[in-house]
């Protein structure tokens, strides 16, 4: 009797140990923009499979550095990495989710959706060319809205960030002046305004300062009920930042013509498309040293693209990838990620 219990205990302990040994934990680092959804996915995935994702949200540049040095199993970046750099470091780039950037402002008596702006006007505000809220350019777009003669204070991200990259890419695409004088990057030389750290920094700065305008990720704006503007899109319509309008922008993107999945969703042609939408990317080594972990990364994202993952993503106001793109990504995994023996990892 005693012996059997002991044997049973050993057997139980044995299976437990085996279970622990089989769990493949995998590490990722990089962009902060998709961090909430990666973490939510990771928690659910661990529940299902026992394999844990450890994701450090250290910024896109940091994510690129770490994957180039191979200190993590995958890197994450909001801005697509240039093709030569991907080639040189043997990295495969694929999108995971899509997000949007919105403009938030603080004016007495003007609520969400009551203020309409165009891309060029937004660019001129951030250039410091339009300095008062009752400027003719803004008043013309907003007949019937009582605009105060107040100084406009543009607020931008002081920390280099993917959000700034998306926002400045949009300003560059709608304003030639912005493109030539400032340009698009994770941090730029801002001609006017003041900088605040992170989405929360911009949001509280705008909230505290009458006449301020800032840009934040949509997930942040919706979670905190920020006052947002409407924007004029390429089709000439004023659109509100809603998930439906983001989806329309994402659907209009030219995936087929995009190299390394770097499809631009900025200012796409759809009738209701929100103009500032962008995917976020993951970087995976094509020659992984830890084959197990690399396989787990692909299994993880494959699951995240599925029904469960999409549900979590929409719950957090991200937009899941279109099914056709998911198929292309999965094909690319099979074709390009190879172990030391030259065989496909997945």
């Amino acid at each position: 009797m005693k012996l059997t219990t002991a044997l049973g205990a050993i057997a139980v302990a044995g299976t437990m140990f085996a279970g622990v040994a089989q769990a493949t934990d995998f590490n990722g680092a990089g962009a902060s923009f998709p961090a909430p959804v990666y973490q939510a996915w990771g928690a659910k995935y661990k529940e299902k499979t026992g394999n844990a994702l450890n994701y450090q949200s250290i910024g896109s540049g940091g994510g690129q550095n770490q994957i180039i040095n191979r200190t993590v199993d995958f890197g994450a970046s909001d801005a697509p990495v240039p093709a030569e750099k991907l080639e040189a470091n043997k990295l495969l780039q694929f999108p995971t989710v899509i997000g949007a950037v919105v403009a938030t402002f603080n004016l007495d008596g003007i609520k969400s959706g009551e203020l309409k702006l165009t891309g060029p006007v937004l660019a001129d505000i951030y250039m410091g060319k339009i300095t008062k809220w009752d400027d003719k350019a803004i008043a013309e777009l907003n007949p019937g809205v009582k605009l105060p003669s107040q100084a406009i204070v543009p607020v931008y991200r002081s920390d280099a960030s993917g959000t700034s990259y998306i926002f400045t890419t949009y300003l560059s695409s709608v304003s030639a002046d912005w493109k030539s004088k400032v340009g698009a990057a994770t941090s730029v030389q801002w001609p006017a305004g003041s900088g605040a750290k992170g989405n929360e920094g911009i949001a509280s700065n705008v909230k505290n300062l009458k006449g301020a305008i800032g840009y934040v990720e949509y997930i942040y704006a919706s979670a905190n009920n920020l006052v947002v503007t409407e924007l004029k899109n390429k089709a000439g319509n004023f659109v509100a930042p809603t998930v439906d309008n983001f989806v329309e922008a994402a659907a209009a993107a030219d995936w087929a013509g995009a190299k390394n999945f770097a499809a631009s969703m900025i200012d796409t042609a759809g009738a209701k498309a929100w103009p500032i939408v962008s995917p976020t990317y993951v970087l995976l080594p094509k020659n992984p040293s830890n084959v197990e972990a690399s396989r787990e990364v692909m299994k993880f994202f494959s699951w995240a693209y599925g029904k469960d993952g999409a549900e979590i993503a929409t719950g957090l106001h991200y937009i899941p990838l279109p099914a056709s793109v998911v198929k292309q990504v999965e094909d690319a995994w099979k074709a390009e990620i190879k172990g030391p023996d030259g065989k496909p990892v997945l």
């Binding site: 250290i58 896109s60 540049g61 690129q64 920390d159 280099a160």
Partner: peptide
């Protein structure tokens, strides 16, 4: 110091 804190995470090797 503030510039280093702000820009370091996005400075590639």
């Amino acid at each position: 110091a503030s510039t280093i804190a702000n820009e370091f995470p996005e400075a590639p090797i």
